[in-house]
Amino acid sequence: DNLVIALHSYEPSHDGDLGFEKGEQLRILEQSGEWWKAQSLTTGQEGFIPFNFVAKA
């Protein structure tokens, strides 16, 4: 599955970004460039995340 774990917390800075906490698990929905579309397994919310803040779970 496309699961990743957050290496750092991220505060959203643009509409459509997904904020998350360090250690949170996310499911990657789309990989494109440096911003990936993801869904939080904690909150169920979707949005874009910086790819370098996460690692394969």
Rank of each mutant, 00 (worst) to 15 (best):
D1V: 10
D1H: 11
D1A: 10
D1F: 12
N2Q: 10
N2F: 15
N2D: 11
N2G: 08
N2W: 13
L3R: 06
L3G: 02
L3Y: 11
L3M: 10
L3W: 09
V4Y: 15
V4W: 15
V4S: 03
V4A: 08
V4K: 02
V4D: 00
I5D: 01
I5N: 03
I5H: 04
I5T: 08
I5P: 00
I5F: 09
A6E: 02
L7C: 14
L7Y: 04
L7E: 05
L7V: 09
L7K: 05
H8R: 15
H8D: 08
H8Y: 14
H8V: 13
S9K: 12
S9G: 09
S9M: 06
S9L: 04
S9A: 11
Y10K: 06
Y10N: 02
Y10T: 02
Y10L: 05
Y10S: 02
Y10E: 00
E11C: 14
E11N: 13
E11F: 14
E11L: 12
E11W: 14
E11G: 06
P12E: 03
P12G: 08
P12H: 04
P12R: 07
P12I: 06
S13K: 15
S13Q: 15
S13G: 09
S13R: 15
H14S: 11
H14K: 14
H14V: 09
H14N: 12
H14Q: 12
H14G: 12
H14T: 09
D15N: 11
D15L: 12
G16I: 05
G16R: 08
G16H: 15
G16E: 07
D17G: 13
D17Y: 15
D17I: 08
D17A: 14
D17W: 14
L18C: 05
L18W: 05
L18N: 01
L18K: 03
L18H: 02
G19N: 05
F20E: 01
F20G: 00
F20C: 04
F20L: 04
E21R: 14
E21I: 13
E21N: 10
E21W: 07
E21S: 13
K22V: 09
K22E: 09
K22Q: 10
G23S: 02
G23A: 03
G23W: 05
E24V: 04
E24N: 03
E24P: 01
E24K: 01
E24I: 02
Q25A: 10
Q25C: 15
L26N: 00
L26K: 00
L26F: 07
L26V: 02
R27F: 08
R27T: 05
R27V: 10
I28N: 00
I28P: 01
I28F: 00
I28Q: 00
L29P: 00
L29I: 11
L29M: 07
L29G: 01
E30I: 09
E30Q: 10
E30R: 07
E30L: 08
E30F: 10
E30C: 14
E30P: 02
E30N: 08
Q31Y: 14
Q31F: 12
Q31D: 10
Q31T: 11
Q31C: 15
Q31S: 12
Q31H: 10
S32C: 15
S32M: 13
S32W: 12
S32N: 14
S32F: 13
S32K: 13
G33I: 03
G33W: 03
G33V: 03
G33T: 04
G33R: 04
G33Q: 04
G33H: 04
E34P: 12
E34W: 12
E34R: 13
E34A: 13
E34H: 14
W35Y: 11
W35G: 06
W35C: 13
W35N: 06
W35S: 07
W35M: 12
W35Q: 07
W35H: 07
W36M: 07
W36G: 04
W36F: 08
K37L: 15
K37E: 03
K37Y: 15
K37M: 12
K37C: 12
A38G: 05
A38F: 03
A38T: 01
A38I: 07
A38W: 03
Q39T: 06
Q39L: 10
Q39M: 12
Q39C: 08
Q39S: 06
Q39A: 08
Q39I: 13
S40K: 09
S40F: 02
S40R: 09
L41I: 12
L41D: 02
L41F: 04
L41P: 05
T42M: 11
T42V: 14
T42Y: 08
T42R: 14
T43R: 03
T43F: 00
T43S: 10
G44M: 09
G44N: 07
G44H: 07
G44I: 02
G44E: 04
G44R: 05
G44T: 03
G44D: 05
Q45D: 09
Q45S: 08
Q45R: 13
Q45F: 09
Q45W: 07
Q45K: 14
Q45H: 11
E46H: 08
G47W: 04
G47V: 03
G47N: 00
G47D: 00
G47A: 02
G47K: 01
G47P: 00
G47T: 01
F48H: 07
F48K: 10
F48M: 12
F48C: 15
F48P: 01
F48Q: 06
I49N: 02
I49K: 00
I49Q: 00
I49T: 00
I49E: 02
P50H: 09
P50I: 08
P50W: 10
F51W: 13
F51P: 15
F51A: 15
F51R: 15
F51N: 14
N52E: 13
N52T: 10
N52Q: 12
N52W: 15
N52V: 06
N52G: 09
N52P: 05
F53T: 08
F53S: 11
F53N: 04
F53A: 09
F53P: 07
F53Y: 14
F53L: 12
V54N: 04
A55I: 13
A55K: 09
A55E: 14
A55R: 08
K56C: 12
K56S: 12
K56W: 14
K56E: 10
K56Q: 11
K56A: 13
K56N: 11
A57N: 09
A57E: 11
A57Q: 11
A57F: 13
